[in-house]
């Protein structure tokens, strides 16, 4: 296995746990080093890339949408896919059954639909695999 490749499985839904952001930091750092990355999004993690997510104002602080700069996970996914669009490459696969259960069909461009069989293939082709489970 000449080229290094990392596979990461994530399961947490957006806006719940810091683990999601840590996973994205690992993906970003690996891509920046020129390492190809596979992400297999399972269960609630398929919602991370949902296109309809919108930033919001903060009525408590009285800030506007623009002032708040509220980050959405779909923007994180989109920017990671931009970073890994060719070489190095990021392959992001959402579990199809999890997508159907949650109606999470409309996702940012570049996110693929797959199954746990794809995760097995990714893991077999990778230097290492990191599974980040729900607690």
């Amino acid at each position: 296995m000449a080229e290094k490749k990392l596979t990461i499985a994530i399961m947490d839904a957006p806006y719940e746990k810091a683990s999601t952001i840590t996973a994205m930091r690992i993906v970003s750092a690996a891509l920046t080093k020129g390492i190809d990355v596979n992400v297999f999004a399972y269960e609630g993690a398929v919602n991370l890339a949902m296109k309809e997510q919108a930033p919001h104002a903060n009525p408590v602080k009285g800030t506007t949408v623009e002032q708040e700069e509220h980050p959405t996970t779909k923007e994180f996914v989109r920017s990671l896919l931009e970073l890994g669009k060719s070489n190095p490459q990021l392959t992001w696969v959402n579990c199809g059954l999890c997508v159907d259960e949650r109606g999470a069909v409309n996702v940012v461009d570049g996110v693929k639909r797959g199954s746990p069989a794809d995760f097995l293939k990714m893991a077999n082709e990778s230097t290492n695999t990191l599974v980040i489970p729900t607690k």
Binding site: S19, A29, N128, L130
Partner: peptide, 19 residues
């Protein structure tokens, strides 16, 4: 350590990464 160092550690050969 930085997250870069974590990436270096987990892409070493013969390494098991456990979260």
């Amino acid at each position: 350590a930085s997250i870069d160092q974590l990436v270096d550690l987990i892409v070493q050969e013969n390494t098991k990464a456990v979260w």
